[in-house]
Each structure stands twice: as structure tokens, then as C-alpha cells.
Design a protein around this nucleic acid. Structure first.
Lengths: 96, 96
DNA sequence: CTTGTATTTAGATATTTGCCTAAATATCAT
DNA sequence: ATGATATTTAGGCAAATATCTAAATACAAG
């Protein structure tokens, strides 16, 4: 599970900031955009990567699209990091 | 602490594989290189990023340079991930 | 069904990244 | 010092990434 996409997604500061925002609760794309200076189009691109990594989920609510954290994947990622430093348990395969 | 450099460093599969190798114990650049198909020059570049992120430490031993894991920074990174999903404790500042 | 608001997609550009080859540096052994 | 081995640095190129503007899509409201 998890893997390359998650780490790539986490590598960008803007995307980590988006995740931080979502800790406080779900927000629409527009609400999130209000916190950044880059265009909504650029943010939409970041949303896509986060979705691809399954770090966030979306739900349409009228004209808005509401983003929310997928905490389990974040937990998995943290676990993978910890696994990365345990004396090889049994060759964990992180789909490179 | 930790921050941007760590996440960037972890974003690459080759670098994560290097870290996995080092779980088993310190190894020289050459020993590590034996596990990869890319050139030693390319690996050296990856070593640099890992060092910059403080994920690995180096020690010269004769003509060899021995790399070892800096586990505390990995732990910090995992902790930052977990922090990323806790309901904002008090606005953690991850030097973007 | 036309207009307005929210969001995404498309296409272009600049920067960054990962890889290579060739050359440089460092240490060891003679 | 000379030559051999280990590693890094420099320079260049192709692919990936982050950003933008402009256009397209989705929904809601008249």
C-alpha cells in the first residue's frame, strides 16, 4: 500500500500546507485557495496529486467540491517511515 | 527541525532504497553502489541529498567513505507525519 | 436556457531533477 | 613521487514539476 505517490505528494511544501489546513476539517477548493497566493488552477493540480496519493478524498456539495484528509494513508506513510529504520523486519516491498 | 529537505530526499525511490540498505548497517559508497545499476556519480548525487537532509552521516575510513543511517532524523520525519494529522496542536512550523 | 459561481483541464514556459560521461580529488601502496 | 582504487565534482541533456493564462465543465438560480 501507500508508496511512491504518497512520498512524492508529501515532498511539496504547498501540498503539506494543504494537508495542514485540512487537519482542522474539510474545506472546499475555494476555501483552501483563500489561504494561498498561487492560482486556483495550480492548486487544482496539487489537489490532483494529493488525490492520486489517496491522501485526500473529495465530495461534491452543490457547486463546491469539498476536500478532506484521508488520515489512514497518512498513518500508513508514517508507519512506512518507521519501518524504514527498523532493522529489516523481512524485506518490506515499497513498490518503487 | 527536519523539514523540506527530508521530505524531498524521501521522495525518490533510489534514495529510499539506499536508506533500506543502510538499515542493515553502515556501508561504503562502493558497497552501496554494488546494489544499483546507475553510475556511482549518480549515486553520489543521491548521497549528497541524503546528507543534506541529515538522513545519513559519513565517516572516512581509508580510501572508503562509510555511510550510516541517522535514525533520529527518520524518527523526526515520521513524527512530523503523525503531527500532520493530529488536530492542529499549536501550529507546528515546518519551515516551508 | 442563460447567466454567474466554482472548479478543472489544456497548453505554454521556466525550474528542478535524475542520469550520464569525463575530469578532479583523496588515499593507499609501492 | 607514481600508479591504482574510491569517491566526488562539473557540465550537459531529457524528463518531470510547478506555475501561469485561457478555455472548458458542472452546478445553481433566475
Amino acid at each position: 500500500m501507500a508508496g511512491q505517490h504518497v512520498f512524492k505528494a508529501l515532498a511539496d511544501p504547498t501540498r503539506r500546507d494543504i494537508l495542514k489546513l485540512l487537519r482542522a476539517g474539510s474545506q472546499s477548493a475555494g476555501d483552501i485557495a483563500a489561504h494561498f497566493t498561487i492560482t486556483k488552477a495550480s492548486l487544482s493540480h496539487h489537489f490532483n496529486l494529493l488525490k492520486h496519493a489517496d491522501l485526500v478524498r473529495t465530495e461534491r456539495r452543490g457547486q463546491h467540491i469539498v476536500y478532506s484528509l484521508n488520515t489512514s494513508v497518512m498513518e500508513d506513510a508514517a508507519a512506512m517511515l518507521m519501518a524504514l529504520l527498523a532493522p529489516q523486519p523481512e524485506e518490506i516491498s515499497d513498490d518503487t
